[in-house]
């Protein structure tokens, strides 16, 4: 143990404050398996395989099954595991806070996240910025209408260090490079900032809708504070056939990169077939929250063990 005991005391208070917040908002605390035979495949997240099962990269799969089974508002504070993620803001094992509430759309989900942030971190009201506006402001280019070529040209204009194995014809690759280097570090500098309406190609498990301005967007949102990504939420996709299609595409993209396909979460797909109510869900990195509350530069300083 190499952290001051005061940090651990504060961490414990934050956990208590989170539970209090959820109980006051009529959420039920649940527990789901850390080790399970299925995962939700993601392109850039690798679960850790253990004994013909997977250490879960998030509790999403099982929590959605509980929502589908009829629980209207649930939260969980648990561990998640992601292979190879280690750095100032990452650890292969980390503490995640995740919640779902039925009847919420994206904006209701964003409001709840803002309330949580204010209650736990004593922050001012979060600003809300569309992904498009954040990109135009900080990267100087429209993320929805620009081609991969135009994004690449912009990255070169900005003199970004471009990795040799970039998939140059993939718009999302360029968007992520610009996001990581130009946009993210400038988000949430004066107050927490919630970015929403992501490119449809980055929907993950969010609903995709056509906005009034004709642009198809993912109803996905992320919370940033001091340039650090704290939480990711969705207006949850409820269509099982659409999810199966997306996950099949994820696996194809994984294999194209030389990484293994992952088994599809048939239990979740089955539950969604039976009916997942409209809901918004959100996942928050607790170690980063503790890091911000403690004013440390790394999550290691906000954890007892690293």
């Amino acid at each position: 143990m190499h952290q001051s005991l005061a940090h651990l005391q504060r961490r414990s208070e934050l956990l208590a404050a989170l539970r209090l917040f959820f109980f006051e908002h009529d959420f039920v605390e649940v527990e789901t398996p850390l080790l399970a035979p299925e995962v939700i495949p993601e392109l850039h997240i690798d679960p850790i395989a253990v004994e013909a099962a997977w250490l879960q990269a998030s509790p999403e799969l099982h929590m959605k099954r509980l929502v589908a089974a009829g629980m209207p508002a649930i939260f969980q504070i648990t561990r998640s595991f992601r292979a190879g993620e280690r750095g100032a803001l990452h650890n292969p094992e980390f503490t995640i806070v995740e919640w779902y509430r039925t009847g919420d759309d994206m904006h209701a989900g964003m409001k709840l996240l803002d309330q949580l942030c204010q209650a736990i971190l004593n922050t001012p009201v979060a600003s809300q910025t569309t992904y498009g506006a954040a990109f135009s402001q900080h990267a100087g280019i429209c993320p929805h209408t620009s081609s991969a070529d135009q994004l690449a040209t912009r990255a070169k204009e900005l003199r970004l260090d471009i990795p040799d194995n970039m998939q140059v014809d993939d718009r999302d690759e360029w968007l992520n490079l610009l996001l990581a280097t130009q946009v993210e570090p400038r988000l949430g500098q004066t107050a927490p900032e919630i970015v929403y309406d992501y490119p449809a190609s980055q929907a993950a498990l969010a609903k995709v809708e056509r906005r009034e301005d004709g642009i198809k967007v993912a109803r996905r949102f992320e919370l940033y504070a001091s340039g650090i990504e704290l939480a990711n939420g969705y207006d949850e996709l409820t269509d099982a056939a659409e999810l199966r299609l997306r996950l099949t595409q994820v696996n194809a993209a994984r294999q194209a990169e030389g990484r293994p396909a992952l088994p599809l979460p048939e239990s979740l797909l089955e539950a969604m077939q039976q009916g997942l109510p409209n809901c918004s869900g959100c996942a928050l990195g607790f170690d980063r929250l503790a890091m911000l509350a403690l004013g440390t530069d790394t999550i290691a300083e906000a954890r007892a063990f690293y």
Partner: peptide, 28 residues
């Protein structure tokens, strides 16, 4: 520096020291 944006691929921002010249360069 390990950096992973949103749902994107991880970036490894390295400072590399040239062991012959002693100079340092950045490479992602």
């Amino acid at each position: 520096n390990f950096r992973k944006p949103g749902k994107g691929a991880a970036l490894y921002e390295c400072k590399l020291k040239n062991l012959i010249r002693g100079t340092v360069t950045d490479k992602t």
